[in-house]
Amino acid sequence: MSVTYDVGGVRLPRPFRIQKFAHFGFNVDDIDKSGEFYEGALGFARTDMIDLQRVPAIAKGFAPGVDGRLVFTRFSGDHHALIYMHRDAAAFMGGGDEPDLTTNQITWQVGSLREIVEAERYLLDRNVKIVRVGRDMPGGNWHVYFTDPDGHVFELSYGMEQIGWSGHSRPSALHKPWFGVPELPRISETEEIDKAEAAGVDLAAGHRYTGTPGPTVDVDGTLLPRPFSIQALGPVGVFSRVLDQALEFYTDGLGFTVTEEVTVHGLPVYFLRAAHEHHSLVLAPIELRERLGWPDRTTNMYLGVQVGSYRQLRAAITHLLGQGYERVRVPAEMHTGIDYAAHFADPSGHRIQIYYAMEHVGWDGRPRPAELRAKMEEPWPESIESDLVGEPFMGPVR
């Protein structure tokens, strides 16, 4: 009889359940150019920035001249969805054995703090390399970091700090990271904040995003500084040097389900899901990177950014081309489950996949048959017929 675990009263094969793609990190070549792309062109809002050169416990031994800035950005109420740091700083921090491991972290959300604690024990029992366990600051989320068979850093996360209507992040006086496995149960965040306020902490002293100056455009009824708004982050794709091991790790180890397998340039590409979206993780052999003609400086295949509509997707393409960013053509099979998608290169060569909607998988667990999918027309029409839907975004957009 196989072992099962009680997760919130439901018996599961693991002591946790991945709910969704949570956030992501890149190691980049240039912090300022990356900021121009991710914050200026795409519209992620900066919530916090740490200079690791100024953190005594970390900076000791840091090579002089290394850019130690770690930038946190968001598109919704979550404190951060996308972070980036310089690849030299990441290497100093132990960013992986291979120089092309530039995915700083790939993070998945679980449903409770108990799942974080029990996941650490479960992963140790499976001889998975644990990077660290505790609570991150800024962001306030509890975590367990570990590596996949290729050395990509994965994170299970719970309890991300929420940015409210005023746009302020948590003040630095509350940046008290927790190292190690927490004892359960813990006090709630409400009690934490009440105690801080009673101790005289100014709750409005955190960083506040002040918006992007310049012209505005009507985006479905809201005036915004660019002709689209980000609705969701993901999926994420990675190239693997040990594909069979990685596939077993993600499915048997972490609970992902293979939705579909396609062939691109004679090699297999696997689309895996955590919940009801067609895929949240894409996995392919490292040999495909060269066959696609993509740079060998990163094992990242692409990172998805969902915008609000097909109209916004077309506008995003025009906007990014107007900003001078390179559009990368990819085989349509690389975005199976998504009808229209455009790919751009960031200043470090990472691929960003921009799309507006994705297929969902129903109760029977089967994706739409390939012959029933709409085909992407070239050139793209001004409007299309589609029954695809995006993940709901409650807004407001900013």
Rank of each mutant, 00 (worst) to 15 (best):
D252M: 09
G324T: 09
A316Y: 05
Q312T: 10
R273F: 05
I230S: 08
Y325G: 11
I338Q: 01
H265P: 09
V269W: 00
G322C: 04
S280L: 00
L283G: 11
P225R: 11
L283Q: 03
V219D: 00
Y270H: 15
T336Q: 05
L281M: 08
G234M: 08
I338V: 15
Q245N: 13
E248Y: 03
A284Y: 12
V328G: 06
G237I: 05
M334L: 15
A316M: 10
R289F: 05
R273E: 02
A246K: 01
G234W: 11
R327D: 05
P285H: 14
H335W: 04
S280H: 04
G253F: 08
P295W: 00
D252R: 15
G237V: 08
H276C: 07
P285D: 15
L243D: 12
F228H: 00
A246M: 05
R297G: 11
A315R: 06
P285M: 12
L303A: 13
A316L: 12
T263F: 03
N300C: 14
H276T: 12
E333Y: 05
V217N: 02
I230A: 05
A332I: 08
Q245L: 14
H276F: 12
V242E: 15
G266H: 04
V258F: 07
E261D: 07
T263R: 03
L233R: 06
G221L: 00
S280Y: 00
R241I: 05
V238S: 03
T259H: 00
V330Y: 09
I317N: 06
R226H: 05
G337D: 14
V269Q: 12
V269N: 08
Y302F: 15
I317G: 07
T259V: 10
H279K: 11
V217E: 02
T257F: 02
L303G: 14
W294F: 13
H276A: 14
G324K: 05
L243K: 11
A246V: 10
P268R: 02
V307G: 06
L224T: 13
Y310W: 12
H265F: 12
E290D: 15
Q306G: 06
R291E: 10
E333T: 08
A275E: 09
L321W: 07
F228P: 00
H278T: 04
D244S: 14
G253S: 04
L283P: 04
A246R: 02
L223T: 06
S280T: 06
A232C: 05
R327Q: 15
P225Q: 09
G324E: 02
I317V: 15
L321H: 09
T336H: 02
T259P: 01
S240P: 08
L272N: 06
D252P: 03
P331L: 14
G293R: 09
V330D: 01
F228E: 01
L283S: 09
A275Y: 05
L283W: 03
L223Y: 04
G322H: 02
V262T: 11
V238G: 06
I317Y: 06
R273S: 03
R226I: 04
T318S: 12
V328E: 13
T222C: 01
A275H: 11
G324L: 07
T298W: 01
Q312M: 10
V264E: 13
T299S: 07
Y340G: 07
E261W: 02
